[in-house]
Write a protein that binds this DNA or RNA. Structure first.
Lengths: 231, 231
DNA sequence: GTAGATATTGACAATCATGTCAGTATAACA
DNA sequence: TGTTATACTGACATGATTGTCAATATCTAC
């Protein structure tokens, strides 16, 4: 059985008798790119940046590694495409969180929760921070003015709320700082949160409590300014 | 001049006439290790993780790359040593910030500022986040219970403050959350802060304002709880 | 069916980084 | 001054990974 098939049989025999149908799978370019990106993303999430190796990813998908190069030009092209896709997904999640499915706007606490949630996915956090570490901001054009956009949306709510309470109009920068703090904190949480929580002896509930606590902190801050006060 | 020295002269001649003293630099093991770590740190800061290549670092120091292997066993050994050193430095900075040079304790705002400051150094932030991204927490034993330690120090101050004001004793978890938030925010700031600030159109002063704003936010929160209130 | 486009492959090339080794130079010490 | 320990080097081995190329299989359109 060992050598029979390949050494004994002549080319003609191969063509006529022995040769089983090659059954090569052929996907659409789009489908192939998707599968490759999925595999790359998973590798990045589980093994970190060095886990993105063409051979390994090819094996995961069940193709040969030149196929990846065919679809993405180079390894760098693959990385760029992965960053672009993840950034876009993240952006969609964030913008989606601004309005729930009924078109209602989420309240601040839920919004904060969704920021943490979107980043807590291991792959996303790792990809974004890797992107920062390697100076690849360029390809993330899709999330360019994301924070400003969100900040503006929140600010207009605050202004309304303040008007309703006959309170002084909140400072735009104050809102921007709230957004920045949330972004920073969620990002930091995604990377060292687990470590810090473990060190502090916090279980899963503790982590949830922390997020609630943070949302509450910001809520109190906003209330303090946007509701009328005697001073 | 081109070939004269090396091709025409026989070994004996080399030994007697032409040979200039080899003047090989020989440092103490400690000194050599320090120089190598310095170079590696600089590479990491400017070029990211992939910048740590034995040949490049060797060239920076002015030695051959096997010399690095001689001192650190392997590339991985170098990375571990670098992580260990940076973690230890970070820890020292943090613990030092708890008490200024007069033995006085820094107040909260200054403490927060120093956390951000310590991490804003590009090398430190990059190294620590790279450490997280690649699951190398192990070698950072020196900063094991750092946050807990700091949190405890701050908490004891809060308790005193509350006693002084005849306010209810603050919750230990509340203080822990303040510490966690600060750590998360400083960490996130170190990685995406520059990007966010740019997007928001903040200049350097704006960044400083943000940190002050954050310190103020926490201060207000603590005051709100630790000073006696009518409710 | 035939033809053209292209997704896919195996084999190979080229580069590059880590690590090994035997030998050399230098400092410390007797 | 001679001996020893070891920091250091050049040349080479090794292995891994990206990238190239010609050939092949499969799909779509005519």
């Amino acid at each position: 059985m060992s050598t029979a098939e390949k050494t004994e049989i002549l080319p003609t025999d191969i063509a006529t008798e022995t040769r089983q149908a090659p059954k090569r799978v052929r996907r659409s370019a789009e489908e192939a790119r998707r599968l490759i990106l999925d595999a790359a993303e998973k590798r990045l999430a589980t093994q970190g940046p060095e886990g993105i190796r063409l051979q390994d990813i090819a094996r995961d998908v069940g193709i040969s590694h030149p196929a990846i190069l065919h679809h993405f030009e180079s390894r760098e092209g693959l990385v760029r495409a992965l960053i672009a896709r993840t950034s876009a997904q993240f952006r969609d999640k964030m913008l989606g969180a601004l309005q729930d499915r009924n078109g209602h706007q989420l309240e601040a606490g839920e919004l904060i929760e969704s920021v943490f949630e979107a980043l807590s996915d291991r792959g996303t956090a790792r990809l974004l921070s890797w992107m920062m570490l390697t100076d690849r901001l360029t390809e993330a054009t899709s999330s360019r003015a994301l924070m400003t956009e969100i900040s503006n949306a929140i600010h207009s709510r605050r202004v309304k709320e303040a008007e309703k309470n006959a309170a002084p109009t909140p400072d735009r920068e104050d809102t921007m700082f709230m957004a920045m703090l949330t972004a920073n904190a969620a990002f930091g949480d995604a990377i060292i949160g687990r470590h810090l929580a473990e060190e502090a002896g916090l279980d899963h509930d503790g982590i949830i409590r922390f997020r609630r606590w943070f949302a509450q902190l910001l809520a109190e801050h906003a209330e303090h300014h946007d509701h009328q006060r005697k001073d």
